[in-house]
């Protein structure tokens, strides 16, 4: 099990989701993927996609406009 960290701060739609997808694709079952970004729509969009994929959304945190989403593959 490993921990993948993706930084998409400053990037807008659709880059954050594209990068999240890339990470989830390379991750193995059970891996944790952590995405950090700033684009507000992506903060809602990524959990939406995770839910549809049937993966586990561990947490969504936000501090000073920077959000962090943790997903278990």
């Amino acid at each position: 099990m490993s921990n993948l960290k993706i930084d998409v701060k400053g990037e807008t739609c659709p880059i954050p989701l594209v990068e999240a997808r890339k990470a989830l694709r390379t991750a193995s079952l059970g891996d944790i993927v952590e995405i950090t970004g700033t684009h507000p729509a992506s903060k809602k969009e990524i959990p939406m996609a995770v839910e549809a994929l049937g993966m586990e959304l561990i947490s969504v945190e936000e501090n000073d406009g920077i959000w962090k989403i943790k997903i278990k593959r």
């Binding site: 739609c13 659709p14 997808r21 969009e45 939406m48 996609a49 549809a52």
Partner: peptide, 13 residues
């Protein structure tokens, strides 16, 4: 809606 958002979400499904 943006077409590439739809294609991305559909791809993940």
């Amino acid at each position: 809606v943006e077409g590439e958002s739809i294609t991305l979400h559909l791809d993940m499904r």
